[in-house]
């Protein structure tokens, strides 16, 4: 439904919820509504990637999405769950408790069809290793904002190597102070300058889109 999609993309919270309630009252197939939501999210992602939308827009769209899901998810059947593009283990490395960047990355990865296990902040290298064994991710994504994260990322990747798991995964890093130099320093496979890069890089790695 064009209007519904448009209102989501324009972040018109009230209009979105009014249309949604109307559609549900009309007994529309929740899967069809979800398909529209997906189209809208893709558009929002594109606007973000092309620097039209920024962090506040993502937060607002997340807020709208949350309210949509609250109403729709109970109506979905188990079989309606779509297949995931890949599994991503995500966390802010040891010593650093910043979560803004990480949470945005998580949000974008999830709306783009990835299954994300979020280990939270200040995550020791050993915990990444243990969770890798348990979750078996395709990609490990390390976040960090402080300069203390440089060495923590390096240590984390070394530990992953020591555990013999390095060849099983691709590793991406990101955060406010992360750049090309740090990528080389820590020995990851890619770094992202913005949260959207996480999706682009992941898509490339899993061969999606």
């Amino acid at each position: 439904m064009e209007k519904f999609i448009e209102e989501i993309v324009e972040l018109n919270e009230e209009a979105v919820m009014n249309i949604l309630k109307e559609r549900l009252a009309n007994n529309e197939d929740p899967m069809e509504i979800m398909a529209d939501v997906k189209v809208a999210m893709k558009k929002i992602g594109d606007l973000y990637a092309s620097n039209v939308y920024f962090l506040p827009d993502l937060i607002m769209s997340g807020e709208i999405l949350r309210q949509i899901f609250e109403l729709i998810v109970p109506k979905l059947k188990e079989s309606d769950q779509q297949e995931k593009k890949g599994k991503i283990l995500l966390g802010t490395v040891e010593g650093d408790i910043h979560d803004i960047g990480k949470d945005i990355v998580k949000f974008l990865l999830e709306v783009n069809g990835y299954e994300v296990m979020d280990l939270g902040v200040d995550v020791p290298a050993q915990v990444f290793v243990e969770k890798m064994q348990e979750f078996k991710p395709d990609i490990v994504a390390l976040s960090g904002f402080l300069t203390i994260a440089f060495d923590a990322m390096k240590v984390t990747i070394e530990k992953i190597k020591e555990a013999g798991l390095r060849d099983n995964v691709k590793i991406m890093i990101g955060g406010g102070t992360i750049d090309e130099r740090i990528l080389e320093y820590v020995g990851a496979d890619a770094y992202g300058d913005s949260a959207m890069d996480a999706v682009t890089i992941a898509n490339k790695w899993v061969g999606a889109e």
Partner: peptide
Amino acid sequence: IPGSLLVTG
């Protein structure tokens, strides 16, 4: 002067 340069360069 970038922090990453002062730490790792």
